[in-house]
Nucleic acid binder design. Structure first.
Length: 854
RNA sequence: GCGGGCGUGGUGAAAUUGGUAAACACAAGGGACUUAAAAUCCCUCGGCCUUACGGCCUUGUCGGUUCAAGUCCGACCGCCCGCACCA
């Protein structure tokens, strides 16, 4: 039996779609629009299975919505600036631009073999001046609209390479290449005022009703709105005050110390005359800048000897520490410690032997006996040991204590956000140049618009240390646009999140002279459905939400939220393999027979490990190109959708791929090679249908209804299961039954249309076999379910006794409760369990269940 | 450390959102076809007990609410993701 020739077919239909420009779109006010977007890839070299999953999900949505009559925008492009290009330049001596463009060419070719319904005329790459000149313009607009400022901030500094390191390049406190101990250094950098929008970004989350709850929660926590107070402590022997921020002013009477960040001005000042403190601060500065590193480090403090006076208790002096767990970027960079009611403070107090005074006791405990051991008490309760606050609950105490602080003029009520302003300066070559000129006389001067874009120099060398763009012999030297004297360009480039914060808007009119074409963005935005990895839950999505608001403020667009719907897909995982020496092996090197794995080449034993996220380092990767070569794109796509819901991790298995492949062939044979009779394409419904044919007819309509609902909710795996069930039903249809040939045609055409978004090439081939080739499936509307076939007259109802299933009964739909009760009680099984006694109670849930309580 | 999530047969999962747990597949075992293999088709397939009819148990663990819990509540265990310069 001939198999379905996927290779020939996939190439054929891809060419047809392209020739007919099936997926090219323009604004069309007469149709509802639908904008589907998958997160654009970083051009790392080759596509991986994560891409295949992401783009398959997007393509199913795009093709389904098109069939549903929407004007669908579905673009693709490249997030082309980033560190890997610079690493490649250093390792292989290839210019980042060449490396990136070659990768794009390879990956574009690979993507095209997947049969994705992109409007390729809208393709963009962020590393091209035609793209980044617009974000330089936007930056200047942000500057003009007071959304940008400069401040000192800390970076990871590799003293050997003389470069700034990314957090991922710092491994155990050392530079990944040099191995040198990393230091923190302060640099003057550009910041965007995302905190101006903190409240708006927080409120906006409520409008994102088609985002996963967990992502909304993560964003909410990231913004981290808190209500508390600033409190000013007087310092013995000094005129200045120590300002702290606290969310628990109610616990002030339990204070036993104050602590400031290592980079707090007070710490810096005291360190000048105290070399031990200077050493301690230097030690803190060796920790790297990542919050995870800071928070997991052992809590250390240095007693400055200074004393802070308690605001309410005369003569109660608190020692002032410099502590490594206090963050300079949060609040005022200083805290007061109340060990009894904060775990970190408690750990710190136990270590440095500071008093632990409980001031909140759980309701119902005796205040005298309440003590804190190794666990701080952080819940609500009643205030004790707290003078005028005694007996209040925590919220009331907070309010009262702040009133008192305000009356005394030593504190204020304050709202604080965990969110920090967005530092966008990067000391790197492969990014968008920041369009600023530094002039000795005029200071900071924006590059005039007519001089945009500021293009990256192509002739840079990566031999030396430091930022190659800053070392370039001529690039940075310019005349000041204001005064004409020699000046220097800014050599920093933008964070690559800058490019990805507005690309979705650029797709609306990627060739426009202006950054954004107003009519186009007004038509297409917001993105109706955005699809990508959960790893972007906070940063990329929050920056894009901020950028959209900033662009609105500058008059570029009208929407506030860029992404109306969000689907976050899980990772693609695979089993891991190691050889006898413990070295990782590629799955393609391994023969797997049942549970035993051997090395394909030598037959040597192989240890199998658990399934983990596919990664180059563990070699548990499967190359999509090899899969598409061997099985075709439709098989890969179907497998991606069949077994796991999209938001969960997906285990890639050869057996699963085989299963998808077999199903496609089975469907092909069923349509193209089956001997069973098939009615003519336009034959009317026969008057008489055999009951078996009637059943299949019903399931055709139920499947249309079910699959449509599944696709709307992104339950692709369930949709596949339903289509397979319908296929089984059609296959089991007796060819001689009255009307079977007609139902069979309807069923096969339906299966073809329903599966088309998932396996579009096969669907087109089936459509031709079904003599429907006059129109492409890609241009054919979605089938409609006839409501008359969706309801059953008879319902199967479960009968339980005391919650345990004892049998089932068939009853007419929506039958009266007492009818159901009588039928249930009439069951022999029920009677025998009841042992002749009358039931105590009978619960009837119509069309579902009868529960007899004995 | 902080924040978020996940946990159901040998495996991926489904369960109309509190109402028949395991749909649809994969793997495995048995059979048919074949000189043979591949492909295809048919049967069995959560566990324990039972010759059978059937019975009991089962959704990470423990407890709770309810006529009824995979689903709700509480505690615990395990794994995964993010933490602001990876994208």
């Amino acid at each position: 039996m001939a198999r379905y020739n996927f290779k020939e077919n996939e190439q054929k239909w891809q060419a047809v779609w392209e020739d007919k420009a099936c997926f090219q779109v323009t604004e069309d006010a007469s149709r509802p629009k639908y904008y589907v977007l998958e997160m654009f890839p970083y051009p790392s070299g080759r596509i991986h299975m994560g891409h295949v999953r992401n783009y398959t999900l997007g393509d199913v949505v795009a093709r389904y919505k098109k069939a549903r009559g929407f004007n669908v925008l579905h673009p693709m492009g490249w997030d082309a600036f980033g560190l890997p290009a610079e690493n490649a330049a250093i390792e292989n001596k290839v210019p980042p631009a060449d490396w990136t463009r070659e990768n794009i060419a390879t990956m574009r070719k690979q993507l095209k073999t997947m049969g994705l319904s992109y409007d390729w005329t809208r393709e963009l790459a962020t590393c091209e001046p035609g793209y980044y000149r617009h974000e330089q313009k936007m930056f200047l607009d942000f500057l003009a609209n007071d959304l940008v400022y400069r401040k000192e901030s800390w970076v990871n500094w590799d003293p050997e390479e003389n470069t700034v390191l990314a957090n991922e390049q710092v491994i155990d406190g050392r530079g990944w290449r040099s191995g040198a101990l990393v230091e923190k250094r302060q640099l003057s950098q550009w910041f965007l005022k995302i905190t101006d929008f903190a409240e708006e970004l927080l409120k906006g989350i409520d409008t994102l009703d088609r985002w996963p709850d967990r992502v909304r929660l993560m964003q909410e926590n990231w913004i981290g709105r808190s209500e508390g107070a600033h409190v000013h402590f007087t310092l013995d022997g000094r005129d200045d005050k120590l300002e702290i921020y606290t969310t628990r002013p109610d616990t002030l009477f339990g204070a036993s110390f104050c602590a400031v960040a290592a980079n707090h001005p007070l710490a810096q000042e005291l360190a000048k005359d105290n070399s031990d403190l200077a050493d301690f601060i230097a030690e803190c500065n060796r920790m790297g800048t990542s919050e995870a590193a800071i928070e997991t480090a052992e809590k250390l403090g240095f007693d400055t000897g200074l004393k802070a006076q308690h605001p309410f208790v005369d003569g109660h002096a608190l020692p002032v520490y410099v502590a490594n767990f206090v963050l300079m970027d949060y609040g005022s960079g200083a805290i007061f410690g109340c060990p009894a009611h904060d775990q970190r403070d408690l750990d710190f107090a136990r270590k440095y032997d500071l008093p632990v005074i409980p001031v909140v006791a759980p309701k119902g405990t005796e205040p005298e006996t309440f003590a804190v051991g190794d666990e701080a008490f952080t819940d609500d309760g009643l205030l004790i040991n707290s003078d005028f606050l005694n007996g209040l609950n925590v919220p009331d105490a907070k309010s009262k204590v702040i009133d008192r602080l305000e009356d005394m003029g030593i504190g204020t009520r304050a709202v604080n956000y965990r969110l920090r302003d967005w530092g966008v300066s990067r000391q790197r070559y492969w990014g968008c140049p920041i369009p600023i000129i530094h002039c000795g006389d005029c200071g900071i001067v924006p590059v005039p618009e007519k001089d945009l874009p500021v293009e990256l120099p192509a002739d840079v060398d990566f031999e030396g240390t430091g930022n190659p763009i800053a070392r370039h012999p001529t690039w940075k030297h310019v005349d000041c646009p204001k005064c004409g004297k020699p000046a220097e360009r800014e050599t920093d480039t933008f964070d690559t999140f800058f490019e990805s914060s507005w690309y979705f808007a650029r797709y609306c009119a990627p060739q426009a002279d202006e950054p954004l074409d107003r009519a186009a963005v007004d038509y297409w935005l917001p993105v109706d459905q955005y699809i990508g990895g959960i790893e972007h839950a906070v940063l990329h999505l929050l920056y894009s939400r901020f950028f959209t608001r900033a662009l609105k403020k500058c008059g570029y667009l009208s929407v506030e939220e860029p992404f109306a719907g969000l689907l976050t897909q899980g990772m693609v995982c695979h089993q891991t393999f190691k050889d006898a020496d413990g070295k990782w092996l590629f799955p393609s090197q391994v023969n797997l027979e049942g549970e035993t794995a051997t090395l394909a080449e030598t037959g040597a034993p192989v240890t199998t490990g658990r399934s983990e996220k596919m990664s180059k380092s563990k070699k548990n990767v499967v190359d999509p190109e090899a899969i598409i070569e061997a099985y075709g794109a439709d098989t890969a796509r179907l497998f991606m959708l069949s077994d796991s819901p999209p938001d969960r991790d997906l285990e890639w298995t050869d057996a699963g791929v085989d299963g998808a492949w077999r199903y496609l062939n089975r469907l092909w044979r069923l349509v193209a090679e089956s001997a069973a009779p098939l009615a003519a394409p336009d034959a009317g419904k026969p008057d008489a249908l055999d009951s078996s044919a009637e059943e299949v007819l019903k399931s055709v309509h139920k499947t249309i209804d079910g699959v449509s609902g599944d696709l709307e909710k992104f339950h692709f795996n369930k949709a596949v299961a339903r289509i397979r069930e319908l296929t089984n039903a059609i296959e089991g249809l007796d060819g001689d039954a009255a009307g079977a040939d007609w139902v069979r045609r309807l069923g096969l055409e339906t299966v073809t249309l329903l599966i088309a978004p998932m396996t579009p090439h096969l669907a087109e081939a089936l459509w031709v076999e079904l003599e429907r080739g006059g129109q492409l499936v890609a241009d054919t509307p979605w089938p409609e379910a006839d409501a008359a076939y969706l309801v059953d007259d008879l319902m199967t109802i479960a009968v339980q006794v005391n919650g345990k299933l004892r049998g089932t009964i068939e009853l007419p739909k929506d039958c009266a409760k007492d009818v159901a009760e009588d039928a249930a009680l009439a069951l022999d099984k029920v009677q025998s369990v009841l042992e002749g006694k009358p039931p105590r109670k009978v619960i009837v849930v119509p069309n579902r269940i009868v529960n007899v309580v004995a």
